[in-house]
Structures are given as C-alpha cells and as structure tokens.
Simulated scan of single mutants.
Amino acid sequence: MFSLELFEKLPVKILTVALLIILTVYLIRKSIKLFFDKTSFLDAKREETLMHFSNQVTKVIGLVLFIIYVLSHFFNLTRFFTGSVVVASALALILQHIIRDYIMGLTYLFERQIHHGDFVIINGNRQGKIEEISMRYLKIRQYDGYLYTVSYSSIKELQNGNRGMRRVIESLVLNYKQNPDDAFRVMEEVARTCNEKYGEYLLKDENGVPLESFKFNHITELNVDFSGHRYSISGLVKEEDFVEAGKKVRYELAMAAYKNDLMMAESLSTIR
C-alpha cells in the first residue's frame, strides 16, 4: 500500500516518466547505431552525419514529451490549445522561425548538401569545419578556435568543400581610394608567385596538369562594410593540403600589401 501511494505522488511519477523517456531515447540511439554497424549501404561520413542528427532529434523529442507530460498535470492542454485563437495565433508567430529552421535543416540533410566534418563557408564570411548538426542549427569550428552557431533559416549562401578537393579563396579588402590598376598588377603577381612556390598543393589531373591554378579573380565585392573593395585569389587544391595552402596564400597577400604599400580598408569607427 505504501509503495502504491508513493508512486501516486506527483514528483515520483514525473521522475519515473523522465527515466522511462531517457531509457527509450538510449535504446533508440543504440538501435540506430547497431543498424549502421551491421549495414554498409551508406559511406562512413554519411552514417556519421545521420547518427549525429538522429541523436539531436531523439533528444529534442524526448524533452518535448517530458514537458508536455509535466504541463498536463497543471493545465487542460487540449482546451488550452484549441479554445484560444489568440494563443494559437501567437504560437504560430513565435514558432514560424523554428519550424522554418527544422524544414531547411531536413532539406540540407536529405539532399546531402552537408556532412559532419565538412569544411563550409557560410554567407561568405564564416568558415570552418562542421562540428554539430542539430535539428535547428549548425555549429562550425572556425580556425581561430571559436565555435560559431548558425540557424538554418539565416543561411543565405553555403559553400561546401567537395571531398578530395577544396578551393582556396583568400582576399584583400583595399581602401576605395586605392588605384585598382596598381592593385590588379600586385594581385596578378601574387597569383604567379603562388603557382611557382606552392604548385605542389594544387589538384592535378592524370597528366599532372593543375585543374585550377591559383588565379586573380579581380574585384569580387564592392564597398565591403562601406570601407573598401575585395580583391581575391583562388585555386583548387588537394583536401589534405587545404589549410596549409590557405596559410601560404595569405602570407603572400600580406607580404605583397606591405611591399607595395597597398591601402588597406579601414573600419569607419577607426577613421577620425
């Protein structure tokens, strides 16, 4: 009798349900992992991505079920959600961005646009390796060590490095008062220097010919942050050499800017 009364107490019931949800989530995750371990119709990277995503999905679903269960003891949820047009409208407005994130996340995943561990460039100004793929956002580890979180609905442009090849894209943002002809001459020289010094990083065909040498792409963006124009250099390199090649190209750009007294762009806050 004592144990039955104890079970009927709300805190014990909530704790029991929480433990059951945790156990169910654990068993689902183990089953999915066992399934991938026993099958081989997907490549390892794809399996890792789906595993990572399924872990996030089961965590969110388990949390939502637990919250609904707890609230059901204090509110008549059916009457609350169906009887109030105002509440329903407010919830629709609040959740529209969340729902959009979920839909876009599923689109990115099932169209195989992203994988766990991929190197990506988000909206042209954030780049790094994907560390986490959740239902609503990506977490990207940048080269400076910072972890950048971006929701799917805020992604306007996504560049993904293909497996086996990566495109190095490095640039200088020069002051709008800089003579473009002088900048073009310097950037062309940097591209030639990179091809001569770092040609071993370039991806080559079966005849040893680079698929895409380092080249100057002219002005790729005007009036960046209202301070100057972007001049960029790119080249197609082997995936394993991507980081090192990027460092070398950045060094050559910095040295060229120093030797040729190029006018770098300045933030408006630094201009007096």
Rank of each mutant, 00 (worst) to 15 (best):
I169C: 08
Y137K: 14
T149H: 12
G117A: 06
I155D: 02
H115C: 11
R126G: 07
I140K: 00
R166Q: 12
Y102R: 12
I169N: 07
Y137A: 15
V120E: 01
G117R: 05
M165G: 11
R112T: 11
Y152V: 02
L109N: 01
I155M: 00
G105S: 09
I130G: 01
R166I: 12
E131C: 07
R100N: 14
E131V: 07
K139S: 04
R100S: 14
F110K: 05
G164Q: 13
I99C: 14
R126I: 12
S154K: 11
I169E: 03
F119P: 00
I122Q: 03
N162W: 15
R167Q: 08
S153P: 03
I155N: 01
Y143F: 15
D101E: 05
L158G: 00
H115L: 12
I99S: 14
I114S: 03
Q142V: 06
L147T: 04
E111G: 06
V120C: 01
G117V: 04
D101G: 07
D118A: 07
R167N: 09
E132C: 09
Q159C: 06
Y137R: 14
G164N: 14
M135V: 15
K139I: 05
D118H: 02
D101C: 03
E132Y: 11
N125T: 15
Y148G: 05
R100C: 13
K129R: 13
R163F: 07
I103N: 10
D144V: 04
M165D: 08
E132W: 03
S154E: 04
Y137E: 11
I140A: 00
G145F: 06
Q159W: 10
R112S: 08
I140M: 00
N123Q: 02
Y152W: 04
R163E: 08
L147P: 01
I122F: 03
Y137G: 10
E111C: 07
R112H: 04
V150F: 04
I140D: 00
M104H: 07
E157V: 12
Q142S: 09
D118P: 01
Y102I: 15
G164Y: 07
L106S: 04
R100T: 15
S134A: 08
D144E: 12
Q159E: 09
R166S: 13
N125I: 14
R167V: 11
Y143A: 15
I122R: 02
F119I: 06
I169D: 00
M135F: 12
R166Y: 15
T107D: 09
K139R: 10
I133V: 06
G128P: 01
G124L: 00
R100F: 13
N123R: 05
Q113E: 13
F110I: 08
R167F: 09
E170G: 05
Y143C: 14
G161P: 02
M135H: 10
I140G: 00
I130K: 01
R167D: 06
I121W: 01
N162K: 15
R136V: 09
R141V: 06
I121T: 03
D118M: 05
V150I: 11
Q113N: 14
Q159V: 10
D101M: 07
